[in-house]
Simulated scan of single mutants.
Amino acid sequence: MRRCVTLLVIILTAGVSAALQIQCYQCEDVRQDDCSAPEFIVNCTVNVQDMCQKEVLVMEDGIHYRKSCASSGACLIASSGYQQFCTGKLNSVCITCCNTPLCNGPRHKRRALSRASALPALAPAAPLLASIQLFLWTCAH
């Protein structure tokens, strides 16, 4: 049993550590342009900043953007705290959090997700899932 627990810790640590660095867009107080060009891409701090944050402020002189890496706790607290101020009107402040690479970039038109297009998104998880299946089989026998 001890061998199974050790093996599970190794598998999960390998899978989690590979998935904890994310890239986000980062800029401070940019007007009009939503700073989604390649020069604004940064690597977030591994195992600390696991989300991308986007702030959209509607001011008299136009729309201002702030984008950055963030820890999930700080980002979720900030976004929920400003939810009442996210009106889209003058002096509006909207803070959103997301956890996929470059997700704080430009908004894309939504399209229907077909089964075929959903499969590539699962590909990075396949080795971890195979390792977990092997672990379960090994410990059961």
Rank of each mutant, 00 (worst) to 15 (best):
Q21C: 02
C44L: 03
R115M: 15
M1A: 11
R2V: 08
T138I: 11
H108A: 13
L12M: 09
L12G: 05
H108T: 14
C94T: 01
A123G: 13
E28N: 07
T45Y: 09
I22R: 00
T13R: 11
G62E: 03
Q21F: 01
F85M: 07
N91F: 10
S72Y: 02
A123S: 14
G88Y: 04
L8N: 04
K67F: 00
A74Q: 03
A74R: 03
I132M: 04
R31I: 06
R110M: 14
P120A: 00
R110C: 14
A116N: 10
Q49N: 03
Q23E: 06
C27V: 01
Q53R: 13
S131K: 12
Q53C: 04
T87R: 01
A130P: 12
T96D: 06
L102N: 01
V56R: 06
D50T: 09
I77E: 07
C139D: 02
S114N: 06
L113W: 04
T96Q: 03
H141F: 11
E55D: 10
L20H: 09
I11G: 05
N91E: 11
Q32Y: 13
Q53M: 09
T13A: 08
Y65R: 14
A14V: 08
S80A: 07
A118R: 07
F85L: 15
C44H: 02
R110A: 13
L90M: 12
C97W: 02
E55H: 01
P120I: 00
R115Y: 10
A125F: 12
C97N: 03
V48G: 04
S117N: 05
T138Q: 12
R2Q: 11
